[in-house]
């Protein structure tokens, strides 16, 4: 569905060249749900803009839905749906007017467009709002409308750029419910960007971790977590000496990557915490070291990012001033 080779985009900002995307090589097959995860300014949005024909690449090629973004942009545009970070529907317009216009823009006739709009309004729980002015909708309603706009022509490929940013948890869940149902019913390929870790974790079957314009990891959320972060075992001991000895015993286990004693706490990193924890506890008992508490934590994608870059996603977001747009 998407194939890119060496896709690059640089911007000139105040006499300096900023490389927003550096040599992106992507192969995304039809029917997948892929997340681009990374801090602000990582190049997620710039990548999406190139794939949706909004921004010409500085170099490299991209074939989207079978058409080259540079030589046949209209071929790409006819087949994709796009939800940008902003609101797609103009705030002075009527909900139904904007949706019908959108259908007309994709070459549907008025009757066809109307029929689709009826169905979409129901599907996205927007019935009853058809005659409202867009500007009077709530944030969640507006975002659902944006999704309806992106789906009027039933695209085979849907790009969502931070679809739920700024929404409350309830609305966020609603958005994903609708998007995933469409994915199931129509087999739509979905590519989305997010900086909500749990969204990438929950909904994507493939996560591409992006940092400084490069894809630094690319796998299913579970494999990324197992391979790049691992589980975390935290033990509490009665005193410092026990903690030191426990850390030493943990390090002796072949599957353990790291074990650090910190006061009366021991932190152990291992890809297979569920099997390692019982072994470790047995070994402690044999050696006469008493563990007071034991806790197993499954990693998050933030741990993956931390493992890859040495920074957490949150820190990176705060440190970034240039929003790579």
């Amino acid at each position: 569905m998407i194939h890119t080779r060496g896709l690059t985009r640089s911007f000139h900002v105040k006499g300096e060249t900023v490389e927003a995307v550096r040599g992106l090589d992507l192969d995304i097959e039809a029917g997948s749900v892929v997340a681009f995860l990374g801090p602000n300014g990582a190049g997620k949005t710039t990548s999406l803009r190139m794939l949706t024909t909004l921004l010409p690449p500085t170099s490299g090629t991209a074939v989207v839905a079978g058409h080259n973004v540079l030589t046949d942009p209209s071929g790409v545009r006819r087949r994709i749906g796009y939800l940008g970070q902003g609101n797609s529907a103009g705030s002075n317009f009527r909900v139904s007017d904007e949706l019908i216009t959108q259908g007309r823009a994709y070459g549907l006739n008025r009757t066809e467009s109307r029929a689709r709009v009826e169905r979409l309004l129901t599907a996205l729980a927007l019935e009853g709002l058809a005659k409202r002015t867009v500007g009077t909708l709530s944030g969640g309603q507006r975002r659902r409308l944006d999704i309806a706009m992106a789906l009027v022509h039933e695209p085979e490929l849907l790009f969502l750029d931070e679809p739920t940013t700024g929404l409350d948890p309830h609305s966020r869940a609603g958005i994903w419910k609708h998007v995933l149902r469409l994915h199931k019913e129509l087999g739509t390929t979905i590519v989305f960007t997010t900086h909500y870790l749990e969204e990438a974790d929950l909904w994507a079957r493939r996560v591409m971790v992006v940092d400084h314009g490069r894809v630094i990891a690319d796998d299913s959320p579970d494999k990324l977590k197992a391979d790049l972060a691992g589980d975390r075992i935290t033990l509490g001991t009665a005193d410092r000496a026990d903690a030191e000895r426990a850390a030493g015993l943990a390090r002796a286990l072949p599957a353990v990557h790291e074990a650090i004693a910190d006061d009366t706490e021991v932190r152990v990193r291992t890809p297979h915490g569920d099997t390692q924890l019982p072994v470790l506890l047995r070994n402690l008992e044999v050696a006469g070291v008493r563990a007071v508490t034991a806790r197993l934590t499954r990693p998050t994608l933030d741990d993956v990012f931390l493992g890859l870059t040495g920074r957490t996603l949150r820190e990176s977001a705060d440190a970034t001033t240039h929003d790579g747009a």
Binding site: T52, R77, Y82, G84, Q85, G90, S91, A105, Y106, D146
Partner: peptide, 16 residues
Amino acid sequence: NEMPSGAFERMLVTPL
């Protein structure tokens, strides 16, 4: 007025 929102951008992504 329309450019800061996504309304114009969304038109650009259509085959219009």
